[in-house]
Amino acid sequence: MRVDLTVNGERRQADDVWEGESLLYVLRERLGLPGSKNACEQGECGSCSVYLDGDVVCACLVAAGQAQGRDVMTVEGLATDDVLHPVQTAFLETGAVQCGFCTPGLLVAVHDLLARDPSPDDDTVREALAGNLCRCTGYEKILDAVRLAAERGRG
């Protein structure tokens, strides 16, 4: 089947989509957007987190056809031209990125968190990121990144 959707503000079309495949597969394999990562395909790790009509979801759990006509934003949509989003720079500066596999999903989740709550306390951050696993950093640097991004966001 064919799936039409908006991705990062652009109208996109995916052809020959198998009805049982996920939005994650469509993004990575059909639309050339490998930013969202595929690590578990069972909703456990959050590395495939994307916005779907404004909600952060696991793209691996959305059936391709469910995204028809919907608005998707992936990690590739966070930066504008060559300028990284403040959440991205905060991750880089605090050393919150090691192997980087969890990073795209975390960036989307943190972007969403700070848009809703510009000054989250640590418990709120942990709760908001409970669906994003990282095997490398031990999370401390990620919390640092969120604090830094929040601080700069409040400016």
């Binding site: 049982g20 395909e41 909703g43 696991c58 691996c60 759990l61 959305v62 059936a63 056809g65 469910q66």
Partner: peptide, 23 residues
């Protein structure tokens, strides 16, 4: 299929291949 949080796991792991999906 509603939120897909149970069903998509089945499909992704090929534990189940229904004839179709009713969204």
């Amino acid at each position: 299929i509603a939120g897909g949080t149970d069903l998509m796991v089945e499909l992704n792991f090929d534990r189940h291949r229904p004839e179709g999906l009713l969204d």
